[in-house]
Every structure is written in C-alpha cells, then in structure tokens.
Nucleic acid binder design. Sequence first.
DNA 1: TTAAAATCTTCTATTAAATAGAAGAAAAAG
DNA 2: CTTTTTCTTCTATTTAATAGAAGATTTTAA
Lengths: 106, 106
Amino acid sequence: MKLLSRQEEIVLLSIWKLGDNAYGVSVREFISELTDKYWSIGSIYVPLERLTEKSMIEAYQGEPSMKRGGRRIRYYRITTKGMEALSEIRKLQNSLWEGFPGPAAS
Amino acid sequence: MKLLSRQEEIVLLSIWKLGDNAYGVSVREFISELTDKYWSIGSIYVPLERLTEKSMIEAYQGEPSMKRGGRRIRYYRITTKGMEALSEIRKLQNSLWEGFPGPAAS
DNA sequence: TTAAAATCTTCTATTAAATAGAAGAAAAAG
DNA sequence: CTTTTTCTTCTATTTAATAGAAGATTTTAA
C-alpha cells in the first residue's frame, strides 16, 4: 500500500479526533488552530475527497435541520482502511524517529 | 515555515541516521530496507536536490578515491535549518497523534 | 592497455498531491 | 423577501513524487 501523504495524515487524524463533529469547516478550523497557519479551502476539501475515493473515510449526512445558517453538513468518519493506513505510517515513523533528540512522542 | 512533505521527512531522517555515510545510493538502500518497498532513483535524488536548494541539507565531496568502482560520491549532511524543520514537524506530530491507540512512538 | 563491469549521479518527463479561492447552495435572521 | 451565515463544489495553478534512461567515473578482468 502507498504511504499516506502528509496532508492525508493530518486530515485523517483530525477527523478521528473530531469524532462526530468532523466535516469540512470543522476540520479546517481544527488544523488551523493546531498549526497556527492559514489553510485554504481547497487544501482541506481536495484531500477529503481523495480520501473518500480511497475509502479511508466515508461521508454521511447530518441531521436535516441543525442550528445556524448553512448548507446541509457532510460529515466524515474514518474507516477501517483509514485506521490501517494510519497504523502503517505510524510504524514507519516510529522506526524513522527512533533516537532523534528532543521531545519524545506522546 | 512550510511543513516538511512526507518524502522530505523520510530523506532528512535517513541522512541523519546514516551519519557520515549518507549519499544517494545509501539513502535509497536505507529507505528501501526500512519500508520494504521499491523506490525509484528519482524518488530519492529529486528530494535530495530540493532539500539542498532549501538549505536543509548540504553536500560535500567524499575522499577522491574510495574502494569500489563508481563515480565520485556526493555526500550529504543535515543543516541546522534541516534539524529545525524536523523538530517542527515532530511537534506537530506529537499533538496530532496524541491519544491514538496502538504502539506509542519510541 | 583496453574492454567490460560496477557504482553513482544527472537529467527530464510524467503523474499525483497541495494550494487557492471564486462561485453557488441552503438555511436562518432580520 | 432580502441579507447574512455557513458550508461545499468546482477548477485552475503550483509544487512534489515517481520513473528510469543516459552518462560519468572508477575498478576489474582480459
């Protein structure tokens, strides 16, 4: 299996962390706060679509009417395949980073 | 500063690990063994050149005559800037992966 | 001493991913 | 009913990853 790209890793983990509140806008906010960087709309939605095509995440519709103005929300959840891809990249990272000085992983 | 790409992370850390034996072919071998995957020549040399342009690594010539047939070897070492980029990406990974089930980082 | 083989890098083309943001859809608020 | 908000779709552009042929340099072997 091909390795996860950086952005795929970040987006996947964000979805995992956001639980039942993972959708385009919330993922973007989460990543912005985490990295303290600007992220364009496309830099979130394009990977979301690609990860969906690869079946690493799947989309589902939220409740028909939720508070606040806006379009119907397209939520995402991570799939088994997505979790496997994360585990694989983590194993690689563990080998690669072994012995590196500085703060250890949490 | 822009985040390191996946391949940049892998190549940088390989150079760091290989110490005074880091050059194109040895980096490629190292990564192949680590990942148990095929890596084309270009998938190593292209990032090496880009990292050099970005001053995250620097090249130096090896001894004029070393054993084995072959062209003069172009060795690399990681720079301060390269180490900083690694530290930055590691910090991000530590936040991102916090709480993820499975083997912790080493 | 030349030819062949080995080791290594340069070069360039192609494919894939990241980044950017305008435009539009849907719902709530005024 | 118009405006404002929230959210996604779409598509263009830039950047990175992948591939491997070709060429350079050195050793080995004939």
